[in-house]
C-alpha cells in the first residue's frame, strides 16, 4: 500500500474515486434511510409550502382546515412594492460581505492551523469551538451587551463614549457583520482544516523532493485538493448568510429606518409577523428560486467536482 499511495502523488484528480459502473440496487439501499427521512420531514412539508403559496392561508385556515385558492394573489401582493429593489441590493451586498469575510478569515485560520504546532493548534481549535458553541440567542444577547452604548466594553475599549451602534446604518450593519462572521468562521475553518488534514503528507514530501517551494506546493497540491470542500463551504456560506435572520432581528430589528432590512427580515415583517402563511410561503418560494438561480452555476460545479467520470 505504501507504493500505491506514493504512486498517487501530486495529481489529486487521479486520486479521485472511480465509481463502480455496474448497475445494482445497492446504492439505492444505502441512500434509502436518508431519502426517507428527508421525504417525510422536508419533502412533504415542501409540497405543502408550495400549495399554501397559492392559497389564502392564515390563522382561520389553520384552525379550521378549510382553505381557499387564490391563484397568484400572494405572489403579486409580495412583488408589489417599491421597496423591493433597494432591499434586494442590500441583501446581496450584506450576503457577499458576510460570506466573503467568513471565507477569507476561515481559510486563513485553516491554513495557519496546518502550519501551527500541536499545542497552538489545540488552542485555536478550542477558541473556534467555544465561539461556535455559544447558542444563537445568547450570542446575540452577548453582542448587544458588548456593544451596549453606556456599559458595553467595546465602546470603552475603543474610547467611543456612548456611541449607539444600532442608531446608524453603517455601524448597525457592521455590528451584524461582526456577529455573523464571528459565529460562522468556526465551521468554515474547522471543515477546511479537516479537508487539509486529509491530504497525505507523502504528496508534500514527494513535491519537496522535486524541489517545489511552499507556494508551488500550495498551488499544485493544496488548492486542487481543497477545491471541492472550499467550493462547498462557499456555497453554504452564501446560502446561510443570505438567510440570516435572528441576528439582524434581535440586534437591530431591521432598523435604523429600515437600514438593515434584508429579504428575510422583510418577509418576516410582511408575512410571518401577521400570520399570513400564504404570503410567507410565496416569499419563501421566490427567495429559494432566486437563490437557486444565483448559485446554480456553483452548485453544478460542486456536483461535478471530484467526479472523475
Amino acid at each position: 500500500m505504501e507504493t500505491l499511495a506514493a504512486r498517487a502523488t501530486v495529481v489529486p484528480e487521479a486520486a479521485a474515486p472511480r465509481a463502480r459502473r455496474r448497475r445494482s440496487a445497492l446504492p439505492y439501499v444505502l441512500l434509502a434511510p436518508a431519502a426517507l427521512v428527508l421525504a417525510l420531514v422536508i419533502g412533504y412539508p415542501l409540497v405543502r409550502l408550495v400549495l399554501i403559496s397559492f392559497q389564502d392561508y392564515g390563522l382561520r385556515a389553520l384552525f379550521s382546515g378549510r382553505t381557499r385558492w387564490t391563484g397568484f394573489a400572494n405572489y403579486t401582493a409580495v412583488l408589489h412594492g417599491d421597496e423591493i429593489v433597494p432591499m434586494l441590493v442590500r441583501t446581496a451586498l450584506v450576503c457577499v460581505a458576510m460570506a466573503g469575510g467568513t471565507l477569507v478569515i476561515g481559510t486563513g485560520v485553516a491554513l495557519a492551523m496546518r502550519a501551527l504546532g500541536r499545542r497552538m493548534r489545540t488552542l485555536v481549535t478550542f477558541c473556534l469551538i467555544a465561539a461556535w458553541a455559544v447558542p444563537n440567542v445568547a450570542a446575540t444577547m452577548l453582542w448587544t451587551w458588548l456593544f451596549q452604548p453606556t456599559y458595553g466594553v467595546v465602546n470603552w475599549l475603543l474610547r467611543l463614549g456612548q456611541y449607539d451602534w444600532t442608531a446608524h446604518t453603517v455601524s448597525a450593519l457592521l455590528l451584524v457583520w461582526l456577529l455573523v462572521v464571528w459565529q460562522s468562521v468556526p465551521f468554515v475553518a474547522l471543515t477546511l482544516y479537516a479537508g487539509l488534514s486529509q491530504i497525505p503528507g507523502d504528496y508534500y514530501e514527494a513535491a519537496a523532493l522535486d524541489g517545489a517551494g511552499y507556494w508551488t506546493r500550495f498551488r499544485v497540491i493544496t488548492v486542487p485538493f481543497l477545491r471541492p470542500i472550499l467550493l462547498l463551504v462557499t456555497v453554504l456560506s452564501v446560502i446561510w448568510d443570505f438567510n440570516v435572520f435572528n441576528q439582524i432581528w434581535l440586534l437591530t430589528g431591521g432598523g435604523p429606518d429600515g437600514g438593515t432590512t434584508t429579504l428575510v427580515v422583510w418577509s418576516f415583517r410582511r408575512a410571518f409577523a401577521s400570520q399570513s402563511y400564504g404570503q410567507g410561503a410565496a416569499i419563501a418560494v421566490l427567495a429559494t428560486a432566486l437563490l437557486t438561480a444565483l448559485t446554480s452555476y456553483y452548485v453544478r460545479r460542486l456536483v461535478r467536482a471530484g467526479e472523475a467520470w
Partner: peptide
C-alpha cells in the same frame, strides 16, 4: 383589530419611536 398583534410583533412600533427619538427620521 387582529392586525394589532402584527404591529407589536414586527417591531415596527418600537422602530417608529426609536427613529423619532434618535432623530434618524
Amino acid at each position: 383589530s387582529p392586525g394589532w398583534a402584527t404591529i407589536e410583533s414586527d417591531k415596527s412600533l418600537q422602530a417608529f419611536f426609536g427613529d423619532i427619538s434618535t432623530g434618524k427620521t
